[in-house]
Amino acid sequence: MEAGLPAVQPVATPATERAAGLTGGGARRLRETAIRTLFTLSAVIAVLILVGIFGVLFVQARDAFTGVEGVAQSTITPEQRTLFTDAEFAALPLTPPAPPSLFGDFLGSTIWNPTGNTALYGVGAMVVSTLLVTLSALALAAPLGIAVAAWLAYVARPRAREIIKPVIEVLAAIPSVVIGFIGIVVLGPWIARVAGVNSGLTAANGALLLAVMALPTIVSITEDALTAVPRDYVQASLALGADRWQTLVRVVLPAASSGVIAALMLGMGRAIGETMTVLMACGNATAMPGSLFDPVRTLTATIAIELGETEVGSRHFHALFAVGLVLFCLTFAVNVVSDVYIHRSSRGRA
């Protein structure tokens, strides 16, 4: 599977347009129009799906911040009252807790405890954990990925490329749950021994695994960017007396920098959205992490762990959609930035 969707330049088809008018026959023309409409509609569906995903997340997430939930003296009807003893009734709060606020209690707080006596829905620690794991993974994967891409684009002989390209495809194909399994059985125990911590299921474990998983994306897009640098640049640099290493580091890489940044952002987008690996390898503690060797729970892992255990329609259920919305916005932003850089790199060359 190729990493990232390349922008494909369209083939203009004026001939097909003209022919549609030339061919006579009412029924035939009607059929053409119907078919054309059908295809257009199917393309519209692609847009509708993206809008629909946002819409479903938004509608479900909104209910986390409205309405009344929980038993309180004020919500109990006279019929229900008979089910409580006086002591039990007196122990209930007078009014149900106010719904969490979007900026104060959700985005602005770091404590996530929806099942506690006082339910708390702070998403801060999860966002920090997600960024900690993702940025660490990127810091590990970027040098290695760029190095391998540079080797593929400038050094490798065709035979060597034929070996390494399928290897990268195999890496891209390994399911994330298998990578997470490796994190549990190999990497976790190793980290525990090396770092001297009780359990190796930490942010560092997830970062190492995500770095491996981000490599195929980073390598393939960086390689495309490097090979797209005009040969004139290389020839000019060599003609001025630079050796090939200087040419690669000082001419080719800077010329391809937009593409390289796009590759890193795409790799980061993948890493932010990755679920099973971090769920299995990171230890899943909801507290704010102090270091890479603390267990952490990311946005994705929280949804994966808790959605199955919540009652459909409860505030907790809706709050998990709100977490999903944060995740959606985060990856959307990263992808848009990468898109901008991809366009910049292709326009600079046109």
Binding site: A7, A43, F328
Partner: peptide, 30 residues
């Protein structure tokens, strides 16, 4: 085969590219 370049096609391409970046767990929520 059918589309002509314009805002509509750009919108469709943008949607497809963004769909490919939506995390799999978000598809699960959807």
């Amino acid at each position: 085969e059918y589309a002509r370049e314009g805002w509509f096609v750009r919108l469709i391409r943008l949607s497809i590219r963004n769909l490919s970046g939506v995390p799999s767990v978000v598809y699960g929520l959807f």
